[in-house]
């Protein structure tokens, strides 16, 4: 087997995550789908690291994780705040910018 299959898998997971972001209304699930996309990217980075034989790809994946962690912290805080004020976790209810 060639490690390129990992890349196919990463592409597939990324696309599924993207589709999830588009179809789900619950902000928490949307967030999970974003995490899924980030993880798919990490898989691709790790695979590239293996293909090229150096550790830079893993470093990037590591930083991705750190940034993702930060993002989750802030994002979930936003969701909680939003839920407090609007009593909803639906992204469709965050529409104050609409005309």
């Amino acid at each position: 087997m060639n490690p390129v299959y990992y890349l196919y898998l990463a592409a597939l997971l990324f696309t599924i995550g993207a589709a999830g972001v588009l179809v789900r209304k619950n902000a928490i699930i949307v967030f999970m789908c974003v995490e899924l996309m980030l993880n798919a990217c990490n898989l691709a980075f790790v695979t590239f690291s293996r293909l090229h034989g150096n550790l830079d790809g893993q470093i990037i994946a590591f930083f991705t994780m750190v940034v993702a962690a930060a993002e989750v912290v802030v994002g979930l805080a936003i969701i909680v705040t939003f839920f407090r004020s609007r009593h909803s976790a639906s992204v469709d209810d965050a529409d104050l910018m609409k005309l």
């Binding site: 993207a18 972001v21 588009l22 179809v23 209304k25 992204v91 469709d92 965050a94 529409d95 104050l96 910018m97 609409k98 005309l99």
Partner: peptide, 13 residues
């Protein structure tokens, strides 16, 4: 510009 985040996300994708 319907105000739905998910519609904007479609255009991003």
């Amino acid at each position: 510009q319907n105000g739905f985040v998910r519609s904007y996300a479609v255009s991003m994708l």
